[in-house]
């Protein structure tokens, strides 16, 4: 029982950074922009948040600065792709590579340092349910925030007018422009939201998972988040589920190593990435489903005429 409780709790911890990044990217991609720089925005958020928390001792301030740093990186991407009309794929890759390099350089002074972790906030009553209570309802504030954001983003896209406009822009920016909607502005706002969430996802790594700054500490989570977006069919709630699923795979492999199951550790470490590839291949198989959900203008540049 104790073990199951610990496994569930650790799945949630492992999944939360993925959830933040994936929910943010769902919203950004719904506007028709493919930002492959999620990994980069996460690592920038992680370092900025770590430095702030380390200097001030305040995890809350660290989260805010991490969000701001992610937003800055996202807006740099937005400036290049939406205003200068640079290729989105190439720019996203460049953003990731640039951010990884930049944080390795700027974070040098912080390596080996530690910060105070984020304290859990058990929810009264719910957290007292046997087994499930401590596993599900005794987490830090960011775990709850991720769940709330998934629901809120889903509601926003489905039921609000602004969400409808965002979807319309991702579907057919020319038509949206003809009706009179500000395509570029809306896309920049969606990108900024995605960047902020990726930044918070990055901050979660040192706030809860490992209280140190480690170079390249995102280790591919941004890429998994991008896969989750496709897996989730561009729906925020499903992105949360996807994050838990992928988080589960990565936690189970740790526990399998702990149990001493006789598989080389390298194979187990591959598990989350292999799972990503398998799931994407399976999902891409059904082309009509993909076309229904994917924003039709995803990744295409928008040239504003007249």
């Amino acid at each position: 029982m104790e073990l199951i409780q610990a496994i569930i709790a650790s799945i949630i911890v492992a999944a939360t950074p993925l959830a933040f990044a994936a929910i943010g990217e769902v919203v950004a991609e719904k506007s028709g922009v493919l930002n492959l720089g999620v990994e980069g925005m996460m690592i920038v958020g992680a370092l900025a948040g770590f430095a702030t928390t380390f200097e001030t001792g305040s995890p809350a301030l660290g989260v805010l600065v991490a969000a701001a740093a992610g937003t800055t990186a996202a807006l740099a991407f937005g400036f290049l792709t939406q205003i200068l009309l640079a290729n989105q794929v190439a720019t996203g890759l460049a953003l990731t590579l640039f951010c990884l390099g930049l944080t390795a350089l700027a974070g040098h002074a912080y390596s080996g340092q530690a910060t105070p972790p984020l304290q859990p906030i058990p929810i009264p009553l719910l957290s007292e349910i046997p087994v499930l209570g401590p596993a599900l309802f005794a987490h830090d504030a960011l775990v709850y925030l991720a769940v709330a954001l998934a629901l809120a983003a889903g509601w926003f896209l489905r039921s609000t007018r602004a969400g409808l406009i965002l979807r319309a822009i991702g579907e057919n920016p020319d038509a949206a422009h003809a009706i009179g909607y500000p395509v570029v502005l809306a896309r920049l706002m969606a990108l900024a939201f995605g960047g902020a969430l990726a930044g918070i996802g990055g901050a979660y790594l040192f706030l809860v998972q490992t209280p140190h700054w480690v170079e390249n500490m995102t280790s591919g989570r941004g890429w998994i988040a991008l896969a989750i977006v496709v897996f989730a069919g561009w729906r925020p709630e499903r992105a949360l589920l996807g994050a838990y699923l992928f988080g589960g795979v990565s936690v189970i492999q740790l526990h399998m190593q702990a149990f001493g199951i006789d598989i080389d550790a390298q194979y187990l470490s591959m598990a989350p990435y292999l799972a990503t590839i398998v799931v994407l291949a399976l999902i891409s198989h059904d082309k009509t489903r993909q076309r229904m959900n994917a924003p039709a203008a995803l990744g295409r540049p928008f040239f504003q005429s007249s």
């Binding site: 409808l164 406009i165 319309a168 579907e171 057919n172 020319d174 038509a175 949206a176 009706i179």
Partner: peptide, 21 residues
């Protein structure tokens, strides 16, 4: 037509009217 294929008729119409959901 300035319509959005993946959206419904009602959603398309709402988009063309200020403040409409």
């Amino acid at each position: 037509f300035s319509l959005f294929d993946a959206l419904t008729v009602a959603e398309n119409i709402a988009l063309g009217i200020s403040g409409m959901r």
